[in-house]
Amino acid sequence: MIGRAAHRALIAALFLFLLAPVVLVIPMSFSADAFLVWPPSGFSLRWYTAMWRETKLMEAARNSILLACLVCAATLVLAMPAALVLARGRFRGREALVALLTAPLLLPTIVLALALLILFVGYGLIGSWPGLLLAHLLVALPYGIRVLMTAVSTLPPAVEEAASSLGAAPWRVFRRITLPLMLPGVAATAAIVFLVSFDEVVISLFVVGPELTTLPVAMFRYVESRTDPLVAAVSALLVLLTLSIVIVLERAVGLGRALGK
């Protein structure tokens, strides 16, 4: 009995440790103080109203949302055929190709960032939309390919063959059978890739420019110069956004199933 109680206490402590920063941010965002102090001396909504006037941050937020959507779309378009070929194909070097395409998942992000910086400077891509899109795609594609490959491999056997024997040409098989059956995987990919891009900070730090920046980078810059609870309010909204995406996904398709667990 004691063992079990201790076990529970340990798990609770772990959760507390993992969630404390998130939990702390929320009361902090309602602070009435002008500085980040704990505990806040009073509560108000002043930082929630103040943040909308912070044009730099707001523009960065718009950029981040647009970027995440673009990355999402591009990833789906590129990763879908790749996943179909990689999960199904029986060709030499398949394993190697899978490893190569998903390798960036394992590489230290800082190394990627540095490499991109060197490459982008030469092509004038720093601080540009194409540069940012390319950089984020590099991080997002491996996730997309992985999750979609799982989705392909969990497709029921022979249904596509059945469809084609019933007279469906390949693209109709894809549209009527393959794609609908992969929808949970596609939704999961979209959500994960959106969050990966929206949350990306290390690589973004290297490739953003004065004219074009993303929300995490803008927040980072903000706290370098100011110490008011405004970023806490922004963070609280981000927590809300992330949570709602995850919940919607879980409700719609079951996140565990979509990830092939």
Binding site: A158, V159, E161, A162, S164, S165, I177, P180, L181
Partner: peptide, 20 residues
């Protein structure tokens, strides 16, 4: 010829019905 141009009806050993 690919299957969709052969006009053959197939009943599969494991049915292969469209689950959706």
């Amino acid at each position: 010829l690919p299957p969709h141009r052969r006009d053959m009806g197939i009943v599969f050993q494991n049915y292969a019905l469209f689950p959706h």
